[in-house]
Structure formats: structure tokens, C-alpha cells
């Protein structure tokens, strides 16, 4: 398994663990994020969870959710998202060697879905211990599993409400060594010990 063959904590190994977690799952998760804790052995210093890495898989039934695609708001929002993506794309392409994976305009001009956008803006977020779903999971040392539009919308956590606004129906945060693993889906997925065990196996490593 991945956990046995990759003993070291690095970006590549983290990405493979996130992939292994949702590519092999029966449920259709749209993404997995590892929120990395800044904490050290000094327990007096408050820890912050920041972006460690993420794997975006996408939604299975994307076409079902395109009801409002002709509204003016939708068009304006898409223009904004594509503009941001275009800028990010040129920044990334600019630092890569010529021909080494620059992304063409076709990909940028394709609709940027709500789930993709939620994943992208997640990269700008961080959570103090006890704040937001990931921070709360870390603070309580127990998994948080929120299924259903109403539960997400009614959550005290801004991130859960934001997820619901972008069409997600399930969001899960599972604490692990040095951070929190978060998964999101546009489907209704109910709590399973299978996923918890997988996270325990794949992410309980020490830096």
C-alpha cells in the first residue's frame, strides 16, 4: 500500500495519499484536501491549519447541475472565474520551462464549476485551531461529518455554509497526525468507518 511504500512526508507523497484516498473509494468524492498544522512540539503556541495539498477529482454528475447557466449572474460569474484562471495560468506557465506543462486556453475557457471554484478558493484559506470545520476537527480530535444541504447551510462554520453555497452536499474533516484531511462531495454520502480507517492508515505519519 501507499502508506508502506512512502515513509516520507513530502508534496509528492501527500498527493499520492490524497489520490489513493478518493480514487479507490466507492463513494464519489469531488476533492480531498490536507490541511497541514503549523504546530510544533511547543503546545503553548496556537496552531494554524494551512493548505498542505489538495487533489481535485471532479463531480460525476456535473451536467445535472447546470440549470441556471443562461442567467446574467451566471455569465458574469463565469467571466470572473475564467479571468482569474487565465491569470493564474499565465503565472504558473511563466515559471515553468517552455513546453513543460503550460495549460492551453481551451481549458481556461471551459466552464469553471462551483466545485472547482470552491477548491481553488480553499487554497487561500487557513483555520486557527478550533475555527472552521477543519479547525474544529483538529481541536476536538474527532471527525466531523456533515451530510445534507440543510445541515451544511445551518452549520456554525462558515466553510460548511460556503460549501453548501457551491453545491456540495457532504463535507468531512478527519484529524490525523499533523493536520486534517477534508473531503467534499456533491452527492449525499453518509458516515462510514471505512473512510476513517483509510485516513488513519494513509495519513498517520510523522514529519
Amino acid at each position: 500500500g501507499v502508506g508502506e511504500t512512502m515513509p516520507f512526508f513530502n508534496q509528492e507523497s501527500l498527493q499520492q495519499r490524497l489520490q489513493a484516498l478518493i480514487d479507490g473509494a466507492r463513494e464519489s468524492w469531488a476533492y480531498a484536501i490536507f490541511w497541514q498544522s503549523s504546530s510544533t512540539s511547543d503546545f503553548a503556541t496556537p496552531s494554524v491549519l494551512g493548505w498542505g495539498d489538495g487533489y481535485y477529482k471532479g463531480e460525476e454528475n456535473k451536467n445535472k447541475r447546470r440549470a441556471s447557466s443562461s442567467s446574467a449572474n451566471f455569465v458574469a460569474e463565469q467571466e470572473h472565474r475564467k479571468k482569474v484562471l487565465r491569470e493564474l495560468n499565465s503565472l504558473i506557465s511563466g515559471v515553468q520551462a517552455a513546453g513543460a506543462g503550460s495549460v492551453g486556453d481551451d481549458a481556461v475557457d471551459e466552464e469553471v464549476t462551483d466545485t472547482e471554484w470552491f477548491f481553488l478558493i480553499s487554497m487561500t484559506q487557513s483555520f486557527a485551531n478550533g475555527n472552521g470545520l477543519p479547525g474544529l476537527a483538529m481541536y476536538s480530535s474527532s471527525p466531523i461529518w456533515v451530510t445534507g444541504t440543510e445541515k451544511l447551510a445551518g452549520s456554525q462554520c462558515e466553510r460548511a455554509r460556503q460549501a453548501q453555497g457551491f453545491g456540495l452536499q457532504t463535507i468531512v474533516c478527519i484529524p490525523s497526525a499533523n493536520g486534517v484531511v477534508e473531503l467534499g462531495s456533491t452527492e449525499l454520502i453518509f458516515e462510514s468507518s471505512d473512510l476513517m480507517n483509510k485516513v488513519k492508515y494513509l495519513f498517520n505519519f510523522n514529519i
Partner: peptide, 26 residues
Amino acid sequence: LSAVPQARRASLARFLERRKERVVSA
């Protein structure tokens, strides 16, 4: 871009590259 931490930059590059693959294969 140098202000963007390495982890996010790598994740972003990967996301954009995979998005391109999804669009091409669609």
C-alpha cells in the same frame, strides 16, 4: 508569484494541468 507558498503553487499547477486533461478528454 514568489509570494505564493510552494505547496499552493504546486497544487495549483497540478489542478490546472488536470483541468486541461479533463477538458480535452470530455
